[in-house]
């Protein structure tokens, strides 16, 4: 467990060193996200990546040929080292750790916006700019909808949750009225 923790740290630091801009960060993050999603979804790819019976050099060749056009060069190199060391099972944790390290390095805030209805592109851009101004950070933003909120927004910036949804307001009102 401790050994894995060390390895995760080494791989994620290597990935973090390879990103210098917000754009490269987003690119690497998206690639890693795709790869983990793919290995989760597709049993054949998952088995191939973790299989010990497939020759290591063959595995690396297949992997290089498949991804050299799409993946960043540094990312590909780190992934090849992981394959060589038979550490592809750590991919999810490496991804998580990389995001944390890179966010700190590049001063990025991860933002999740949940609204009761779909927001148009203009609104999304306005909100993103405003949040970037307020936090003085680059914003890695995700939008989602949840009709249960009834109205208003829930904005989660890293670990802070700003909840102005009607659902929460009604719940707070209910607690106050019944004196809980």
């Amino acid at each position: 467990m401790k050994q894995n923790h060390k390895k995760i740290k080494i791989y994620s630091e290597a990935l973090c060193n390879s990103v210098d801009t917000f754009e490269t960060f987003q690119n690497v993050k998206a690639c890693l996200h795709e790869l983990t999603a793919l290995s989760k979804k597709d049993l054949m790819i998952n088995t191939f990546l973790k299989s010990k019976s497939v020759d290591m050099s063959k595995k690396m060749n297949i992997f290089t040929e498949a991804f050299q056009e799409v993946f960043d060069k540094n990312l590909l190199e780190v992934l090849l080292v992981m394959i060589e060391n038979d550490d592809m099972n750590l991919l999810i944790d490496v991804n998580k750790s990389f995001v944390v390290l890179a966010k700190e390095k590049l001063n990025i805030a991860y933002v999740e916006v949940t609204s009761s209805a779909d927001m148009d592109e203009n609104m999304k851009n306005q909100l993103s700019d405003k949040l970037s101004d307020i936090t003085s950070k680059k914003i890695d933003i995700n939008f989602s909808t949840n009709q249960d909120l009834i109205g208003g927004l829930k904005i989660k910036i890293d670990d802070m949750l700003f909840d102005s949804s009607l659902k929460t307001k009604l719940e707070n009102a209910k607690s106050k009225l019944i004196g809980v």
Binding site: M160, L161, D163, K169, N172, K176, L177
Partner: peptide
């Protein structure tokens, strides 16, 4: 009572439940 209800935005530091069992939760964040 309704007039007196706080209309401000609810601000909290949050985390996420990673695993739960036997009355103990492991959470990330916080």
């Amino acid at each position: 009572q309704i007039k007196n209800i706080d209309n401000n935005v609810d601000v909290n530091e949050v985390g996420e439940v990673l695993e739960i069992g036997d009355g103990v939760a492991r959470t990330s964040g916080l």
